[in-house]
């Protein structure tokens, strides 16, 4: 397996008025191509910050991040980001939103329309191309966000709590769909979540974060066969272990 994303000694400090806040310290991580990795932890443990840095949207204060063998200097062309609050442009139709990443790369209109249609079909959005985002449900909006990220055929999907704002039922459906897409596209996925169940349903590997400053407390391989059921014995055992590691309380479900 080749190393697709590599972080070496990554730290992030936010300057504050009275004192600096250390969000992350000494993060070393290697993520192989095609792996589905979940970053799990409570809110405020720096997992989203790390994802933003791997997306090239923020700079680490110390250490290096490399994506596809290139040291990161701004957003990488090999990765696409799915944002927590979906990040759709409210003035664009679903079609235009999905086309945006391709447009940013200078793709021709006909090509954009064709590729957009393909990924709209894949994300079960056929027939919604001409709607505006506010006309869609939360789950559909996030599907549009995923479709948009897929259009440039990225080698990695960086997903920042993409299903965090959805109801349980919609969430479950989108998790299934995401796994299907992942199996089809074989992209590397880095997925930030604060839900132990979600991490266990999705990931090959779970990186457990601990807070103040954010560090990787454990790196756990999940060898359960897919599709996974939360009732299975292996699942419950891992869930118990993770709950202990995260120091779960009511924050974590």
């Amino acid at each position: 397996m080749n190393r697709f994303i590599e972080c070496v000694g990554v730290g992030k400090i936010y300057p504050g008025k009275t004192e600096n806040v250390e969000a992350l310290r000494g993060i070393d991580l290697v993520c192989d191509a095609g792996e589905f990795v979940c970053l799990l932890g409570r809110s405020g443990c720096g997992k989203s910050t790390l994802l933003q840095m791997m997306a090239g949207l923020e700079r680490p204060t110390s250490g290096q991040i490399a994506v596809a063998g290139r040291e990161l200097d701004g957003p990488s062309p090999d990765a696409a980001v799915v944002f927590q609050d979906h990040g759709l442009f409210p003035w664009m139709t679903v079609q235009k939103n999905v086309e945006f990443n391709m447009k940013a790369r200078g793709a021709k209109a006909a090509e954009r329309a064709k590729v957009a249609r393909h990924f709209l079909d894949m994300t079960s959005l056929t027939g919604f191309a001409d709607r505006y985002p506010h006309e869609l449900s939360g789950g559909m909006r996030q599907r549009v966000g995923i479709a948009r990220a897929l259009t440039t055929e990225p080698k990695a999907l960086l997903m920042d709590e993409p299903f965090g704002a959805l109801d349980a039922q919609t969430r479950g459906r989108l998790q299934d769909e995401l796994l299907q897409i992942w199996e089809k596209q074989r992209t590397t996925v880095l997925f930030v979540t604060h839900s132990i169940d979600e991490a266990l349903l999705l990931a090959d590997r779970i990186l457990v974060f601990s807070p103040r400053p954010g560090r990787i407390a454990a790196d756990i391989r999940v060898d359960l066969p897919r599709p996974r059921a939360s009732q299975s014995a292996g699942f419950s055992a891992l869930a118990r272990e993770l709950r202990g590691l995260v120091g779960a309380d009511r924050d974590i479900d």
Binding site: A55, G56, L57, G74, P75, P77, A80, V81, F83, D85, G87, F89, W91, M92, F100, N101, K103, A104, R105, T152
Partner: peptide, 27 residues
């Protein structure tokens, strides 16, 4: 702010950002 991040992550050029994001958002 997320919308500007979306544009940056997509590596959109400044002209496209102005035309497709800043202008319509300000309309």
């Amino acid at each position: 702010r997320t919308l500007i991040k979306v544009a940056r992550a997509a590596r959109a050029g400044e002209l496209l950002v102005m035309k497709d994001i800043i202008l319509p958002a300000s309309l």
